[in-house]
């Protein structure tokens, strides 16, 4: 057997098998059961304890690239908040963020929810970390008009909001920086807001110290976090189906690593 060849499989073969492994379950879901972890339960309990009529802030800090991992989290939490009658205000420190805010809003507008009352999209604020700091301390001072060009002071949902402490919770859905770390450093630390996070999977290890320290109250981790939130809140949705694709994808990668190592050892033995 040509062990050398097995150590250098053409990357196109790997790519084709990975495409198949992820595409097939999308078309024919395998319905692999999904368990839910303590972090998601904690996240859900915090959100569920917010009384109707209160308002929460979603900081949509992601772009289309990270969206497949993070946007489903925002969708799941948004659904929960709308069902509970909690208002949702969107802000973004990434240029692409407001568009996701509009995507989240539109489905509910069609169901009769009212813009300005149940939700509002404050748009994008440039300036990264500095902008987060300023917005955190003075919401109205930083954003005078919303994404739809309405004066922020005219929106009923924004009445009584001075700084970010006036929100029952701030959830930073983040695919990188500026994101969770900046919110912790510039706003959670100085003002002590109730901060939660929805993170892209690759950033989860980086944010764990903040969760352990209590600066981030709870965190949803990637697509799996969204799928678990959907399950916990009793609304299994699209994220749960996507987890099957992730499962098979992981298995393919593991299989290639094993094949590569067997070939490596057999080759060494032969020599």
């Amino acid at each position: 057997m040509d062990w050398k060849k097995l150590q250098n499989i053409d990357r196109r073969i790997i790519y084709i098998l990975l495409i198949l492994a992820t595409a097939v379950p999308m078309i024919r879901p395998l319905a692999i059961p999904l368990s839910t972890g303590p972090s998601v339960h904690k996240f859900y309990q915090i959100m569920d304890a917010i009384p109707a009529g209160e308002k929460v802030l979603f900081s949509l800090d992601y772009a289309p690239s990270g969206a497949p991992d993070v946007h489903p989290q925002a969708l799941a939490v948004m659904k929960h908040m709308m069902n509970k009658g909690v208002g949702v205000v969107f802000i973004s420190f990434w240029e692409a963020g407001p568009m996701f805010g509009e995507q989240l809003i539109r489905a509910y507008e069609e169901q009769g929810y009212e813009y300005g009352v149940h939700f509002a999209n404050l748009g994008y604020v440039p300036g990264g970390e500095s902008a987060i700091k300023r917005f955190g301390e003075d919401v109205a001072g930083q954003v005078s008009r919303d994404f739809r060009n309405n004066p922020v002071s005219s929106l009923p949902i924004m009445q009584g909001i001075k700084d970010t402490r006036d929100f029952a919770a701030v959830i930073c859905f983040s695919a990188g920086n500026p994101g969770v770390q900046e919110w912790v450093r510039q706003v959670q630390g100085p003002l002590g807001i109730n901060l939660l996070a929805g993170a892209v999977t690759v950033s989860v290890p980086q944010y764990m110290p903040y969760v352990d320290a209590g600066q981030v109250k709870a965190m949803l981790a990637g697509l799996r976090g969204a799928a678990e939130y959907e399950t916990v809140s009793g609304n299994p949705g699209p994220s749960v189906a996507k987890m099957d694709a992730q499962s098979l994808g992981h298995l393919i990668i593991i299989a290639f690593i094993i094949v590569g190592n067997i070939a490596f050892f057999m080759d060494k033995k032969k020599q």
Binding site: I9, R11, I14, Y15, L18, T22, A63, P64, S65, G66, A67, P68, A96, G249, I252, I253, F256, I257, V259, G260, N261, F264, F265
Partner: peptide, 22 residues
């Protein structure tokens, strides 16, 4: 954007296969 991000899955697979040797 999503397509660019998706390429990562393929690159992770090929890089892991190439680099993860005992």
């Amino acid at each position: 954007g999503a397509a660019m991000f998706a390429i990562l899955a393929f690159y992770i697979a090929s890089a892991a296969y190439r680099a993860f040797r005992m």
